[in-house]
Simulated assay, not measured.
Amino acid sequence: MIQKLLDALIDIVLWIPRQLFGLLVDAVELMLGWLPEIDIVDIQGIFDGIGGELLYFLTVFEFDYGLTAMMTALIARFILRRIPFIG
């Protein structure tokens, strides 16, 4: 009997946060509908516009490896700064 009473009390107390969360989700969904659609440019057309000289230097300097290493370092730094007593 006491367990049922506690369960009912918990349901009553948690009803307001659940309703507020539902309203917040509905508001965010409505606001996302207001955003304009972005036209996606053809990626192949962009790469076709890059000259051969630039592609040569990107290959020599290993741009793909460098970009991957930089992004990995930035993500690791972000994660490490979230750990208490380290960052």
Score class of each variant (00 low, 15 high):
M1F: 11
M1Y: 13
I2K: 15
I2H: 12
L5K: 07
L6D: 03
D7T: 08
A8I: 02
L9W: 07
L9F: 10
D11P: 04
I12A: 14
I12H: 09
V13C: 05
V13D: 04
V13F: 07
L14T: 11
L14Q: 15
W15F: 13
W15D: 14
I16T: 11
P17A: 02
R18G: 10
R18D: 06
Q19W: 08
Q19F: 14
F21A: 11
F21C: 01
G22Q: 08
G22F: 02
L23S: 12
L24E: 10
L24C: 13
L24T: 14
V25S: 06
V25G: 03
D26H: 13
A27T: 09
V28A: 15
E29P: 04
L30F: 12
M31D: 06
L32A: 07
G33L: 09
L35Y: 11
I38P: 00
D39N: 11
I40R: 14
V41L: 14
D42A: 02
I43L: 10
I43Q: 09
I43F: 11
Q44G: 13
G45W: 06
G45P: 03
I46V: 11
F47R: 12
I50P: 01
I50F: 02
G51L: 00
G51K: 01
G52W: 07
L55K: 15
Y56W: 08
L58Y: 04
V60N: 02
V60M: 05
F61V: 08
F61Q: 08
F63V: 01
Y65C: 07
G66K: 13
G66D: 05
L67R: 01
L67H: 00
T68C: 06
A69Q: 00
M70G: 10
M71D: 04
M71R: 12
A73K: 03
L74S: 01
L74W: 03
I75G: 00
R77I: 07
R77W: 09
F78Q: 02
L80S: 12
L80M: 15
L80D: 07
L80K: 10
R81W: 03
R82Y: 03
I83T: 00
P84C: 01
F85K: 14
I86K: 09
